[in-house]
Amino acid sequence: MSHTIRSLSNRGEIAKLQFGASNRNMAAMAYTVLDAIEFDAGVSGNGLDKIYSKDQIQTALKGVEYFKDEEFGSYRLRKGDSDSEAFLNKVADGMFGKVNVIVQEPELETKESCASRCHNFLSTIMKSMSSEYVTIEFR
Rank of each mutant, 00 (worst) to 15 (best):
residue 76 R to Y: 05
residue 117 R to M: 03
residue 119 H to K: 13
residue 61 L to D: 07
residue 116 S to N: 10
residue 4 T to S: 13
residue 72 F to A: 05
residue 61 L to R: 15
residue 7 S to A: 15
residue 127 K to E: 12
residue 117 R to F: 02
residue 67 F to K: 04
residue 125 I to E: 00
residue 136 I to A: 10
residue 116 S to P: 00
residue 27 A to T: 11
residue 85 E to C: 00
residue 5 I to Y: 06
residue 39 F to G: 05
residue 129 M to K: 02
residue 65 E to D: 15
residue 111 K to N: 06
residue 118 C to F: 03
residue 99 V to G: 01
residue 10 N to V: 14
residue 118 C to I: 00
residue 33 V to H: 14
residue 84 S to F: 08
residue 14 I to V: 13
residue 109 E to L: 12
residue 6 R to Q: 12
residue 19 F to I: 04
residue 83 D to P: 00
residue 5 I to A: 08
residue 81 D to T: 04
residue 58 Q to K: 15
residue 43 V to F: 01
residue 111 K to P: 04
residue 38 E to S: 14
residue 71 E to A: 05
residue 50 K to F: 06
residue 37 I to N: 14
residue 1 M to V: 04
residue 22 S to A: 05
residue 97 G to S: 02
residue 42 G to H: 04
residue 102 I to Q: 12
residue 83 D to G: 12
residue 25 N to H: 07
residue 138 F to V: 07
residue 136 I to H: 08
residue 59 T to D: 14
residue 53 S to P: 01
residue 73 G to Q: 11
residue 101 V to S: 01
residue 100 N to T: 14
residue 44 S to R: 13
residue 121 F to N: 03
residue 110 T to S: 15
residue 39 F to H: 15
residue 131 S to W: 01
residue 48 L to K: 14
residue 5 I to S: 06
residue 76 R to F: 07
residue 24 R to N: 09
residue 124 T to H: 12
residue 114 C to E: 01
residue 119 H to T: 07
residue 4 T to M: 07
